[in-house]
Amino acid sequence: MTPEKKQQIFVAGHQGMVGSALVRTLSQNKSLQIIVATRRELDLTNQSAVRHFFAYQHFDQVYLAAAKVGGIHANSEYPADFIYQNLMIQNNVIDAAHQTDVQKLLFLGSSCIYPKFAEQPIQEESLLAGYLEPSNEPYAIAKIAGIKLCESYNRQYGRDYRSVMPTNLYGIHDNFHDQNSHVIPALIQRIHSAKIADQKQVEIWGTGQAKREFLYVDDMASACIHVMNAPFAQYQQMTATLSHLNIGTGEEVTIQELAQLICDVIGYQGKLIFNAQKPDGTPRKVLDISRLHQLGWQHQISLKKGLAQTYSWYLNQQGQLRTV
């Protein structure tokens, strides 16, 4: 008896935080064959290379997690890189999927697609309802274009290309760059260094009162797979005229509470000093995830557990951390 043919799943961006979590989770299903390609093997900004790659492989599903990402500093310094590279990656992968008759694709966006002053918690309907945060507008516009590209292929060609917008993500394989990292890896690195150096206090930018929502990356992978494989009729019912779904926990903490949790995980006994002369950023940012819950998915990993797992991984990766 010939073995049943495995489904061919392409994960674009498998070396990033989300992509690697997708590969870890999908690999547990032995009926799937996971296909990946490094940047050296496949330049996703090269249209002809991407088309040739897709034509040769014959994928059943595509997870588009590849993107140029970074914090406020990186977005401010390299706006042309952020909009150009992300547009090229998205356009090439989504169109190549269509040209090779891939019916199912999941595009990963970012909560920065929403207006700077969107009503909280942010509903999917808030897309294009106001001005974006200027510091990451080029990146956000690229992500909005990706959502609309998927929506347009669905409308014109009957494809099933879905989009998900995650809240702030963290976890293993995060970026610990001094200037380009996001808040959790930055705080882990700063507080860990203070503990090692026996510093009596750590300064943190802002008042500490800004509120944020955080999702552990393995929960993000689980949500992506759930959304990708949800029955079409059920997904259509949840999204209605929308073209994307929010992914998050629905829970929020202040930066002060987050920093104290990280201190508890690391075992740092010093004092936290909040510098109110530095910016807080948006006072509050949390996603409305009621549609995701109706679709049957909820997060499993608490913030404290996720932080502990991230710190444990951080300790084991000294000298090998991603810092780009």
Score class of each variant (00 low, 15 high):
residue 171 G to N: 08
residue 254 T to A: 09
residue 213 E to L: 08
residue 143 K to D: 05
residue 197 A to L: 11
residue 213 E to F: 07
residue 127 L to E: 10
residue 179 Q to C: 03
residue 245 L to Q: 02
residue 198 D to I: 11
residue 223 A to C: 01
residue 175 N to W: 00
residue 172 I to P: 02
residue 239 T to V: 15
residue 155 R to H: 12
residue 151 E to M: 09
residue 230 A to K: 00
residue 248 G to N: 01
residue 189 Q to E: 13
residue 127 L to P: 10
residue 165 M to R: 03
residue 180 N to M: 07
residue 157 Y to S: 03
residue 164 V to I: 15
residue 168 N to S: 11
residue 246 N to L: 01
residue 223 A to I: 04
residue 235 Y to G: 10
residue 166 P to M: 11
residue 232 F to N: 01
residue 172 I to W: 02
residue 158 G to E: 06
residue 171 G to S: 09
residue 139 Y to C: 12
residue 158 G to Y: 14
residue 255 I to F: 13
residue 208 G to I: 12
residue 240 A to C: 02
residue 156 Q to D: 04
residue 249 T to A: 09
residue 146 G to L: 04
residue 181 S to W: 02
residue 156 Q to N: 02
residue 184 I to L: 13
residue 182 H to D: 13
residue 222 S to R: 10
residue 209 Q to N: 08
residue 182 H to L: 14
residue 223 A to N: 05
residue 117 F to Q: 12
residue 207 T to M: 05
residue 148 K to D: 14
residue 249 T to I: 11
residue 148 K to T: 13
residue 179 Q to T: 03
residue 227 V to E: 02
residue 140 A to L: 08
residue 230 A to P: 08
residue 121 P to F: 10
residue 204 I to H: 06
residue 193 S to F: 08
residue 182 H to R: 10
residue 193 S to W: 05
residue 124 E to C: 01
residue 203 E to N: 15
residue 206 G to R: 08
residue 160 D to G: 01
residue 178 D to V: 04
residue 180 N to I: 03
residue 234 Q to G: 04
residue 175 N to K: 04
residue 249 T to C: 11
residue 205 W to H: 15
residue 196 I to K: 15
residue 172 I to E: 15
residue 225 I to A: 00
residue 116 K to I: 01
residue 228 M to D: 07
residue 221 A to R: 00
residue 120 Q to I: 10
residue 254 T to N: 13
residue 215 L to Y: 00
residue 136 N to E: 06
residue 155 R to I: 12
residue 192 H to T: 13
residue 132 L to Y: 05
residue 238 M to N: 07
residue 180 N to D: 11
residue 136 N to V: 02
residue 231 P to H: 06
residue 140 A to V: 06
residue 196 I to T: 12
residue 201 Q to H: 13
residue 220 M to Y: 03
residue 216 Y to L: 07
residue 165 M to N: 15
residue 213 E to C: 00
residue 193 S to V: 05
residue 151 E to C: 10
residue 173 H to Y: 14
residue 224 C to R: 08
residue 213 E to G: 01
residue 255 I to G: 05
residue 123 Q to Y: 03
residue 222 S to I: 06
residue 215 L to Q: 04
residue 137 E to T: 03
residue 130 G to N: 09
residue 166 P to E: 01
residue 253 V to E: 06
residue 116 K to G: 05
residue 185 P to K: 15
residue 138 P to R: 08
residue 155 R to Y: 12
residue 142 A to L: 10
residue 254 T to R: 13
residue 135 S to A: 12
residue 125 E to D: 11
residue 227 V to R: 00
residue 129 A to N: 14
residue 143 K to G: 07
residue 196 I to H: 04
residue 136 N to F: 14
residue 134 P to E: 04
residue 243 S to W: 07
residue 232 F to S: 12
residue 160 D to S: 10
residue 174 D to C: 11
residue 135 S to G: 02
residue 170 Y to D: 03
residue 122 I to D: 09
residue 165 M to L: 13
residue 173 H to F: 11
residue 131 Y to N: 13
residue 142 A to R: 14
residue 133 E to P: 00
residue 126 S to I: 03
residue 197 A to K: 02
residue 121 P to G: 12
